[in-house]
């Protein structure tokens, strides 16, 4: 709270509104929102089946999958970005860059960095959501004639709807604030790969405190709005 107040103390409102006409800030804002949204959708596409499998089934590689999902949460984001860079210099990485998509210092790099950073936490949250739903619903559905796939889409997924929605929003909030892996993999090229967190770092390095405060307030306002909206929506659905 004190940190947030100190940002408000330094906030120049005229400068704040003027900033919205600055192309570099608008570009950073747009890149942050779009990259975080794409990374979140990708993370959800991967996390929903993974979280369900980890919650419901026991399989040989389950402990390995568990550890691999924890890794991006434990490892330093800069190290994670460096690891991605190193991977992209290996033959498979070079093939991806040559024939599929260029990742280093591009918009794709921002998405990949954010996706890898949030994947573990997103899967954990979704696994917890499925853990809270008793498998008895699926068992009953099967005795009523539903196949495992029908059970998933008609019983488990609708029951997990609120948890998945909440996990998606928190994942988005974490992705939009991602810094270490993004700057390592995509850099901070104005109007091309500069996101709000990397822009904060760049402005701070030139001692532009007013500019830093504007970006911080922008980032905080977005994240808080999303979180409040999420809580409100989940509560409304619950009621």
């Amino acid at each position: 709270m004190a940190l947030f107040c100190s940002a408000l103390y330094h906030l120049d409102l005229n400068y704040f509104f003027k900033s919205f006409s600055e192309k570099r800030i608008l570009s950073a804002l747009w890149l942050s929102i779009s990259a975080a949204s794409i990374a979140t959708v990708l993370a959800l596409i991967f996390s929903i089946p993974t979280g369900y499998a980890l919650s419901r089934y026991n399989f040989f590689l389950k402990p390995v999958a568990d550890v691999l999902l924890e890794l991006p949460v434990l490892i330093s984001p800069a190290a994670l970005g460096a690891l991605l860079l190193i991977f992209l210099q290996t033959p498979p990485g070079l093939i991806i860059r040559e024939y599929l998509v260029e990742i280093v210092y591009t918009f794709g790099g921002i998405i990949l960095a954010q996706f890898i950073s949030v994947l573990g936490i997103c899967t954990r949250m979704i696994k917890s959501t499925f853990d809270e739903i008793t498998p008895r619903y699926e068992n009953i559905a099967r005795t009523l004639g539903a196949t495992p796939v029908q059970c998933f889409f008609r019983v488990s997924l609708p029951l997990a709807k609120n948890g998945i929605f909440y996990a998606g929003l928190l994942t988005w909030a974490k992705a939009i604030g991602e810094f270490g892996a993004t700057i390592t993999l995509a850099g901070s090229i104005p109007m091309k790969t500069e996101t709000l967190p990397t822009a904060i770092y760049m402005k701070l390095s030139t001692a532009d405190v007013k500019g830093v405060v504007v970006l911080i307030v922008l980032l905080l306002t977005m994240s808080l709005t999303i979180l409040i909206a999420a809580r409100f929506t989940v509560k409304k659905n619950h009621d």
């Binding site: 008793t134 008895r136 619903y137 068992n139 009953i140 559905a141 099967r142 005795t143 009523l144 004639g145 539903a146 196949t147 019983v155 609708p158 029951l159 709807k161």
Partner: peptide
């Protein structure tokens, strides 16, 4: 045989009606 192919309906003790 999986449950969905047995054609045996089951009403469990905890009466699991789908809450959604």
């Amino acid at each position: 045989l999986p449950p969905e192919q047995r054609c045996i309906s089951y009403v469990s003790q905890d009466n699991t009606l789908f809450p959604h």
